[in-house]
Design a protein around this nucleic acid. Sequence first.
DNA 1: CGCGCCACGACCGTATACAATCATGCCCGC
DNA 2: GCGGGCATGATTGTATACGGTCGTGGCGCG
Lengths: 253, 253
Amino acid sequence: MRQRGSVQAGTSLADPCASSRRRRPADEVIYGEVLDAIISHRLPPGTALPEDTLAAAFGVSRTLVRKALQRLAHGKLIELRRNRGAIVARPSVEEARELFDARRLIEPVLVRSAASRIGDAELEALRAGVTREREAFARGDRHELIRLSGAFHCRIAASSGNRVLADFLGELISRTSLVIALYEQPAIWPCSLDEHGRVLEALARRDAAAAAELMRHHLDHCEAQLDLSGEGRAVDLMALFAHARAEPALEAS
Amino acid sequence: MRQRGSVQAGTSLADPCASSRRRRPADEVIYGEVLDAIISHRLPPGTALPEDTLAAAFGVSRTLVRKALQRLAHGKLIELRRNRGAIVARPSVEEARELFDARRLIEPVLVRSAASRIGDAELEALRAGVTREREAFARGDRHELIRLSGAFHCRIAASSGNRVLADFLGELISRTSLVIALYEQPAIWPCSLDEHGRVLEALARRDAAAAAELMRHHLDHCEAQLDLSGEGRAVDLMALFAHARAEPALEAS
DNA sequence: CGCGCCACGACCGTATACAATCATGCCCGC
DNA sequence: GCGGGCATGATTGTATACGGTCGTGGCGCG
């Protein structure tokens, strides 16, 4: 009943220093695993997350699952409907736009700050990350690509020196991943790699202004690639099926 | 958000309470009550929050208390020490500075946005709030003053139209309250009222630029009133009591 | 007198049992 | 056929029991 072997999936981007610790608490494992599954789109928005099933999946009781779900709900990554179970969150179009507005406000500042204080070691780690992004893209591994892309932004934020904002940005990035899952357009994609690379270059030459501007542009580009025009998942069923509706007081079949 | 008066904690909830209202989920009550107690300084930083005691105080089992504490911990309002219980968080000086940096980044933008879209009703509510702040100050009710001050910032944020940032600012404001509890200097205080009033005036004439600038100035002022020079609570006991230490293997001091 | 070990108490960590609630489908009267 | 009410199954809500861990004080030994 105790399978504590296979729980060591990729390091969650919210907790960069998670490895090498002695016996991580089980609820954090669950939190991290589910978080990772959500942000890498293995659990699409709307997916039901029954406590029993998760408890069985992790080999623990519902108690721990509940704790993890509670935390995920606080971060707006799942919706906790009273008496009806949890589902992966489905951010509205408005929320999506607000998310990007928030990131456009925060990230350029963070990048600017990081440019003047980032160390060579971190720079190297960033470079390695971008390389892995390219590899993931080359072999068409979208899950991994999304995860790595988020990690890139997170790492830069962590180098900014402001943990408060960096933590918040981590939440925004996770939620952005949900937005992408919901509103991405099938066609285009290849740009963000180059853009990450360019931000990194500016960072490496400690060009704060350029790095900030590139980041802002990158975010604009990301948002532009989404289809935020319609009302998304909140489709009006009444309007959608109006043409097929049997009119209550209308004859004429 | 907290307009619903203070519910007496400590009275047994076994009371039928069959009043007209449908009872709010117990865990939210606990969360709200503890949150309110923390931000109004009735629970100072460092205060222990044993699950048993809280459970008894609210007349519920530890299960619900744990849920509430979990959420409070996610918002960094309490520290959850493994196997050693929860205490009200004690933000470090660095965190305090980061908090203010974050607010200086976000709030002017939010105010600017609010200036162009706030309605007369909200404006009136804001005015009423400032009036109550003045009254609380007049009768020396610091708890209430702190609560109302936070509510003022929250309301403006809510009028900005960006819920994502407004929610985040709500967290920042709560944490700022902890910072004030830890680092406020005894002497000065009277300014923030006028500053709130001035921000409100600018808002009322839809002067976005002025409102943003006033808000930035207000935050500067608030931070300047704190004593963030020393290392705060993290006093080095070794150094503090060095003069009274019995030297283990050293003669002649 | 000082130091380390041990036992105890307080508290949290987790599992499990049972009650409550919602959604769904069935059935019956019309 | 159609609508409303009830039975039912699935799932969460809450309480409680038991075991584990940590901090602290006492005790005995050197």
